[in-house]
């Protein structure tokens, strides 16, 4: 993530959106290191900022970080929790939309990097996939054509 940011920050914007903890020390399924570091779910916006700052310092991240509000509105719209990767094209549509983490995070990073590499190479944004055509299925018994979308 950090490596990709350093490589492509000249052609794209990058933001971490800090959301609620995935496995805080007081969570139902806490991560051992969350307990060790004493990271609990944030109760206030200020607490969220403190943990986000700690993450950036501990992991030496230089990617700009945005803090989701305590109503988790942006997280809810994007279904970002526990972690997820998106890339917004210049036309405002999503060029990359990964499956939710942890399964989708590494593939999402890979997809975003591939998108950016093509963008740098060609100077054009990779095209969006064609919408799936309507399929026609013939009912063998009646001969009727059923259309599904």
């Amino acid at each position: 993530m950090e490596k990709m940011y350093r490589k492509y920050r000249d052609i794209a914007e990058f933001y971490i959106v800090y959301i609620s903890e995935a496995h805080a020390a007081d969570d139902e399924w806490p991560m051992p290191y969350a307990k060790k570091l004493g990271i609990k779910e944030h109760k206030t916006y200020e607490e969220r900022c403190v943990v986000a700052d700690r993450l950036r310092k501990d992991k030496k991240l230089t990617i700009p970080c945005l803090i989701d509000e305590m109503d988790n509105n942006v997280d809810k719209i994007y279904k970002g929790w526990p972690d997820r990767v998106f890339l917004i094209r210049t036309d405002g549509r999503l060029g990359v939309a990964a499956i939710r983490g942890p399964w989708g995070f590494a593939p999402g990073i890979k997809a975003a990097e591939k998108w950016l590499a093509e963008y740098r190479k060609t100077g054009k944004e990779p095209p969006l996939p064609e919408p799936e055509p309507e399929t026609q299925a013939t009912d063998a018994h009646s001969g009727d054509v059923a259309t599904t979308s």
Binding site: M1, M4, Y5, Y8, I11, A12, E13, F14, Y15, I16, V17, Y18, I19, S20, E21, A22, H23, A24, D27, P30, M31, Y33, A34, L37, I39, V51, A52, R54, L55, D58, I63, D75, Y78, G80, W81, P82, D83, R84, V85, F86, L87, I88, R89, T90, D91, G92, G95, V96, G101, F105, A112, W115, L116, Y119, E125
Partner: peptide, 18 residues
């Protein structure tokens, strides 16, 4: 983010420390 529309793509990483 609307300020980047028509100008630059934006990569977003949702996540937390844990």
């Amino acid at each position: 983010l609307a300020s980047f529309k028509g100008n630059r793509p934006v990569a977003i990483f949702f996540g937390s420390y844990t």
